[in-house]
Structures are given as C-alpha cells and as structure tokens.
C-alpha cells in the first residue's frame, strides 16, 4: 500500500511540471497575440527606409518605395497647389491622429504586402487633398486597431510631400464588404477610412470606418511659384 502511495506521489511530482508548463505556455501564447501584432506595426514604422525592397516583391513585380514624408515644413503654404502623384507601391502620405498610437504610413495601391507595411489607398480614389473621395484601408489588428475609437469631430491630419491636409470626422460608418456605397468616387471632397469589423469567429464580412470632411489645405508650393520658376 505504501509502495502504491509512493509511486503515485512520484508520478504526481513528475507530471506536475509538465502540466504547469503547458498551462503557462498556453496563457503566454494567447496573451502574446495582440502585443505581437502591435510590435509588428511598431517595427515596420520604425524601420521604414528609402527604396527598401523586399526580395519577395521582386518576384511579384511590386516595387515598394518608402519615402520620408516632410513633417517639419516651416515655409509658406497656400490652399492651392500642385499634387505629386505617387506610383503604385509608393508610400506617399502619413496619417496622424491623437487617437492613433502611431503615425500610419499610407501606400498608394492595395496589396497584401503593402497592407503589412501600412495603410493602403485605393488607386480608384483621389489622393489626399484632391477633390473627391480619398479611400484608405488597413488591417484592424495592426494599423487601424484604433480606428473604432474615433468620434465625430476628431481631427485627422494627412501629411504628404506636397502639403498637409486636415480632415474632421463627420460620421462613423458600417457596411458590408459587397456594398460599395462609401468607397466609390464622389463629387464632394472627403476622406473615407475603413477596416474589417473585429470578429473572433469566422470571416469578417462587415467593414467599419469613418467618413471625414476636409477642413484645411496647406500646400507647400503654389501654382504661382511654379510658373515663376
């Protein structure tokens, strides 16, 4: 009887570390998912560099161009100016908002690889500051994780190398992925930001976002300066 108790005790002593180890690893893995996604965002934003190309991109023909966006312009500005049209795969703007934890790079074009690096602007939409609908999307677990925290009246600043544009959130939206109401071209000048609605189970068919109106334009060059040159 004593021998049985002893062997059970030994078995318990041996099995316990494995049980505890398995529970701890499970908890740590689950807990690390969100911080890992956030870390990827931070790493991507921190290590952006000019003309950084990923070897995989060469196979797909996609050339990803990371540009340094002017953030400390001190010269004169005007509310009219010249746009610098980006190329597909080029980072042409940054989104800044108090409610976002990082400054979000914006790439021209929608691509799986570009979505890993930042927000993507639909090439069917207009570039920031231009008349019409500027449509920008990003992943909900990385760059647009804080999008749902935006409220009406929040300011969103889009910095480009041709100017800085301030938008104000006008309405919060939700639509099905097949509904193109908010992403089609429009006559009025607006900014549409959207991402997938958080859904733990199943695929995300719903999209959430905001529509913003343009309230301020500051071009770094004016058409008059250009003609003078």
């Amino acid at each position: 009887m004593n021998k049985k108790i002893n062997s059970r005790s030994i078995a318990l002593h041996i099995a316990t570390p494995f049980v505890v180890g398995a529970i701890t690893c499970g908890i740590l893995l689950l807990a690390a998912i969100k911080p890992f996604d956030k870390l990827k965002v931070y790493l991507n934003v921190a290590f952006m560099d000019d003309l950084k190309t990923d070897p995989d991109d060469e196979k797909s023909g996609l050339i990803i161009r990371d540009n340094k966006i002017i953030s400390d312009y001190t010269g004169t500005t005007s509310d009219t100016g010249t746009f610098i049209r980006p190329r597909y795969g080029e980072m042409y703007a940054e989104i800044q908002c108090e409610k976002f934890s990082v400054v979000i790079p914006v790439y021209w074009g929608s691509d799986i690889q570009l979505l890993e690096r930042g927000a993507c602007q639909s090439t069917g939409s207009v570039i920031a500051g231009d008349a019409g609908n500027s449509v920008i999307s990003a992943h909900e677990d990385t760059f647009f994780a804080d999008l749902s925290s935006l409220e009406k009246g929040d300011a969103i600043i889009i910095r480009t190398n041709y100017g800085v544009f301030t938008y104000k959130v006008k309405e919060k939206i939700q639509f099905n992925k097949n509904d193109s109401k908010y992403v089609v071209p429009s006559k009025d000048t607006k900014l549409t930001l959207y991402t997938c609605k958080k859904n733990v189970l199943g695929s995300a068919d719903e999209r959430v976002g905001v529509v913003c109106e343009l309230i301020e334009k500051k071009f770094y060059n004016s058409p008059a300066e250009d003609t003078a040159k």
């Binding site: 931070y42 934003v45 921190a46 952006m48 953030s71 940054e94 800044q96 976002f100 934890s101 990082v102 400054v103």
Partner: peptide, 8 residues
C-alpha cells in the same frame, strides 16, 4: 529622429 516623427 524617425522614431520621434512616427510617435514611437
């Protein structure tokens, strides 16, 4: 400098 401009 870059980290500061990106809010990190």
């Amino acid at each position: 400098d870059s980290m500061q401009s990106h809010g990190l």
